[in-house]
Amino acid sequence: MIFDPNNPIIKLCMSGMGLEDSGNSEDAITMFQKAWDEATDYYERFIASYHLARLQKSITEKLKWMKTSLQCALKINDDNVKSAYPTLYLNIAKCYEELGDSENAKRNYELSNSAKGKPSDKGPFYHGTKADLKVGDLLTAGGISNYKPELKMDHIYFTANVNVAGLAATLAKGEGRERIYIVEPTGEFENDPNVTDKKFPGNLTRSYRSKDPLRIIGEVTEWAKLTHKERREWREEIDKNKGEIIN
C-alpha cells in the first residue's frame, strides 16, 4: 500500500487540515466529510474517517468514527497501515475512558501497547537528494537540513516510498539534478518522528531515520516527478511553515 500525496482523497484531507490550522473547523469537517463520501476503497476510508473522528465534538461520534477508521485499517491488513494501529487503539481507549467504560478503555490501551514495536519494513529503501553519488558510497548523518539551513542533522533519513524520496529530491538543496538512490541501512532504524502520528496516523509514508550510515546499492532512474504546480505548492508550504520540516 503506497501513500500518495497526490491521491485526491489525501489531498482533500490535507486541505481540511489547512482549514483546521487556520481555525476554520466547520469547513474542515465539511472537507473531511467530502473525502469520506468520495473515498473508493478501505485505505481512503481509513484516512478520511480518522480525520473526521478527530474533529467530532461528541465523544460518542468521535468513538464511532475512530472505530470505523480502525475497522477499515484492519481490513487492509497491510504492514504499512499497521503502523497506525497503536494510535487508533489509543484514541479509542481515550474515548471509552471519557465515557466511563473502564473495561473497554483498558482493553484498547493494552491493544495499543501490544501493537507498538520497531519497524519491520524490509524495503526496498530510497534516499532522495541532488548529490552526485555512486554505488558503494555511504550516506552518513551530520548533513544540513533541507528545511533549516542552520540545522545539522543527527540522523540520515530514508523511505520505502519512492514518491516520498522523489519529493525529498525535489526539495533538496543544491543545483544538481534530482536523484533517488536505492539504499541499504547498515544499522538499526526507527520511524521518522517528524511524520509519524503528525498529519496522518502512524507512519503511512514509510519514512525512517538512522544514526548509522546508509549504503548506496543502486539508483532509480524513473519515477513520477512533480508537476510545476505541485513543486510550487510544496515550496509555498515550506515558506508558510518558515522552514519547518513538512509533515
Score class of each variant (00 low, 15 high):
Ile29Asn: 09
Ile10Phe: 05
Ile238Val: 15
Asn241Ser: 12
Arg231Lys: 15
Gly100Asn: 01
Met66Asn: 02
Lys94Glu: 14
Gly23Trp: 06
Asn146Pro: 08
Trp223Phe: 08
Lys82Met: 09
Asn6Gly: 06
Asp192His: 07
Glu97Pro: 00
Gly176Trp: 03
Met153Thr: 11
Arg235Ala: 12
Glu219Ser: 10
Lys122Thr: 13
Cys72Asn: 15
Arg235Glu: 14
Asp121Lys: 07
Lys122Ala: 12
Lys225Ile: 10
Gly100Phe: 01
Tyr50Arg: 04
Lys199Trp: 11
Met17Ala: 07
Asp239Thr: 12
Met31Pro: 02
Asn7Gln: 07
Arg206Trp: 09
Glu230Asn: 05
Pro119Glu: 04
Asp78Arg: 04
Asn161Ile: 03
Lys62Gln: 09
Pro86Ile: 01
Ile245Glu: 12
Ser207Glu: 09
Asp121Trp: 01
Met14Leu: 14
Ile217Leu: 08
Ala169Pro: 06
Gly166Cys: 02
Ala39Tyr: 00
Asp121Ser: 09
Glu219Gln: 15
Met66Cys: 08
Asn91Thr: 03
Ala105Met: 01
His127Ile: 06
Asp132Lys: 14
Glu150Tyr: 10
Thr196Phe: 00
Gly23Ala: 03
Leu52Arg: 05
Lys106Ser: 11
Ala224Thr: 14
Ala105Cys: 00
Arg177Phe: 12
Glu61Ala: 05
His127Ala: 02
Ser69Gly: 03
Ile245His: 10
Thr129Cys: 06
Met14Tyr: 10
Ile156Val: 15
Glu20Phe: 12
Leu12Ser: 09
Ile2Asp: 13
Arg206Thr: 09
Glu175Gln: 12
Ser49Val: 01
Asp101Pro: 01
Gly218Gln: 06
Ala53Ser: 15
Leu12Trp: 04
Arg235Ile: 12
Met31Cys: 15
His228Phe: 13
Glu61Cys: 00
Lys62Met: 03
Leu12Gln: 11
Ala73Gly: 06
Gln56Ser: 00
Phe3Met: 07
Arg107Gly: 00
Arg215Ser: 05
Ser15Leu: 11
Glu20Met: 12
Ala224Arg: 15
Ala115Val: 05
Asp212Ile: 09
Asn6Ile: 11
His155Asp: 14
Ile2Cys: 03
Thr159Arg: 05
Thr186Val: 06
Glu178Thr: 09
Phe32His: 07
Leu19Asn: 04
Asp27Lys: 15
Lys229Asn: 12
Ile144Ser: 07
Asp4Ala: 01
Val164Asp: 14
Lys242Tyr: 13
Ala165Trp: 07
Asp37Ser: 13
Tyr85Lys: 02
Leu204Ile: 07
Ile92His: 00
Phe32Ser: 05
Ile76Glu: 10
Lys134Asp: 08
Ile216Pro: 06
Leu167Gln: 08
Asn161His: 02
Gln71Ser: 14
Asp154Met: 08
